[in-house]
Amino acid sequence: MSGVEARLADLGITLPAVVPPVASYVPAVVSGNHVYTSGQLPFIDGKLPASGKVGAGVDAATATSLAATCAVNALAAIKSVIGDLDRVTRIVKVVGFVASDPSFTGQPGVINGASDLLGNALGDAGVHARSAVGVAVLPLDSPVELEIIAEFV
């Protein structure tokens, strides 16, 4: 078990199998010394634990937890193409999408769930640039979706 996976285990998190694509894409690709993940939904055991808009049907606390799940799924996708998460030297960029009720403006707080998880799992290498974007709808009516760009050696 890698150091990153041991830190995840300390948080009570086991890295899942990579979530199979739901359309015509791959979960992650390597270009140079970077991994680009596809948008990761908060699947747990192949299912979305919640659906709908944040601020109308899905509360912010639930969405924040789901964002952390997206980050775990993204880490699994990264591991699938580089073999060992200890090779990650930096999470360069996180882009988080929040399916939002028009009155909901707490997207940064929701995506903090992912950012905090990455910081706890990777330490300084988990500190990243980020965007948190409110959108009308996401695939499968997911409340959140996350993309990551990671640098590795």
Rank of each mutant, 00 (worst) to 15 (best):
A71M: 08
P16F: 07
G123W: 08
T64A: 12
K47Q: 13
Q40M: 15
E147P: 07
G57Q: 01
V81A: 12
F43L: 15
L146M: 07
Y25R: 05
A71P: 08
A23D: 13
S100G: 11
A76S: 10
G46Y: 10
I148T: 10
G32L: 12
I148E: 04
L122M: 13
S65M: 09
G57D: 11
K53P: 06
G119T: 15
D124Y: 06
L48C: 13
G134C: 04
D124K: 02
L138T: 02
D141T: 00
G113T: 00
T64I: 01
G52N: 05
S65A: 14
V18K: 08
E151Q: 15
T37Y: 03
V95A: 08
V144L: 11
G57M: 07
A68E: 03
V144F: 08
L85K: 01
A23L: 11
A71W: 02
D116I: 15
V153D: 15
N33P: 00
G46T: 02
T64W: 05
L138H: 06
V133Q: 10
V94T: 06
G57S: 05
H128Y: 05
P102I: 09
Y25H: 13
V19K: 10
L48G: 11
E145L: 15
G134H: 00
S38R: 02
D59Y: 13
I13F: 10
V72M: 07
A50D: 14
E5T: 10
A9H: 09
F43T: 12
K53C: 11
P108N: 06
V81N: 07
V35N: 13
G46W: 02
A114W: 08
A56I: 09
R87N: 05
V94K: 00
V95T: 15
S2I: 03
M1F: 09
R7A: 14
G57C: 06
A125C: 05
V95H: 04
G109N: 14
P21C: 11
V4W: 03
R87S: 11
A99I: 00
P20I: 02
H34V: 14
K79F: 11
P21S: 10
S103F: 11
A74M: 03
A6I: 07
V26R: 04
L66K: 10
S100R: 06
D84V: 00
S80L: 04
L85P: 01
S24V: 14
F104L: 09
V137I: 14
H128M: 15
T64F: 03
